[in-house]
């Protein structure tokens, strides 16, 4: 079975973002970029399925400017077999990403597609579900466990009240939650080897997709900052403040 993993290039999760002075967006100049953490988990899951003999090939896809090839190489170093870069000037919005991925899937015919549940920059949490709808396939979102057996995939999902397990017909779309696995680090020899693994570049036109704008970003602002409070020196002082000053207990 072939697996497709879709990965996004985002700001490193450790970095505190700064809004640009002209309010057009967030300052990404000279900022460390990385694989979206949920996509790292998606890559790890795919590699484990390959190591377990469930999957035969892992193909990673990323959509965006040339720079996303850096993250594709990272995924190849982690163990993916080949990469597809769909080149666009900017990172397109979720529905466009889903349409491009739907075309890649049509051509590649994977048994399972694994995505992150959410990009940590746009916080959309949309692409996997949109892709599943466009491809007319079942979805297992926010997965904390994935088991392929008997032509189906069992997905345990993190839901508001706890955990819920679904059985999905293959091909299916899965999106990862934090506790699905702990991603490995790439080893230096693998990073060298990754440079020679195949990486195809395609354009949206090659895939027959016209990108459309659905949502316009009018401005980006820094949220209201909380004023730092005070330190209290004892439990008694804390209880007194909560009772008599804040009046919350």
């Amino acid at each position: 079975m072939k697996l497709i993993v879709s990965v996004k290039r985002v700001i490193d999760y450790n970095i505190k973002v700064r809004v640009k002075a002209d309010n057009t967006g967030v300052d990404l100049a000279n900022v460390k970029m990385a694989l979206n953490p949920f996509c790292e988990i998606a890559v790890e899951e795919a590699i484990r399925l390959k190591e377990a003999g469930v999957a035969s090939e892992v193909v990673v896809v990323s959509i965006g400017p040339t720079a996303v090839q850096e993250q594709l190489r990272t995924a190849l170093a982690l163990g993916a077999d080949r990469a597809i870069h769909v080149e666009t000037d900017e990172l397109p919005e979720p529905l466009n990403v889903a349409k491009l991925l739907a075309k890649v899937i049509e051509a590649e015919q994977p048994g399972l597609v694994i995505l992150g549940k959410q990009s940590i920059d746009s916080d959309n949490n949309q692409v996997g579900q949109m892709l599943a709808a466009l491809a007319g396939r079942p979805q297992g979102t926010f997965a904390s466990e994935v088991k392929v057996e008997g032509g189906k995939v069992l997905v345990t999902r993190e839901v508001d009240g706890g955990l819920r397990t679904l059985s999905l017909d293959l091909p299916a779309i899965v999106t990862t939650d934090l506790r699905l696995n702990e991603p490995r680090y790439a080893k230096l020899p693998d990073i060298m080897k990754a440079k020679r693994k195949p990486l195809d570049v395609k354009t949206p036109a090659d895939l027959g997709v016209e990108l459309k704008q659905h949502i316009t970003q009018l401005k980006v602002e820094t949220p209201a900052q909380r004023e730092a409070g005070i330190k209290v020196d004892s439990v008694d002082a804390l209880i007194d403040k909560l009772k008599n000053e804040a009046k919350v207990i």
Binding site: V17, I120, V220
Partner: peptide
């Protein structure tokens, strides 16, 4: 398209939503 997790309604088609873990607020 979808507008995820809006925190304010500006008009029938303009909304605010947090991005970057709430470290920026986008008007969309």
């Amino acid at each position: 398209g979808q507008l995820s997790e809006i925190i304010a309604v500006e008009s029938a088609d303009i909304f605010k939503r947090p991005i970057y873990a709430g470290n920026a607020i986008a008007t969309v």
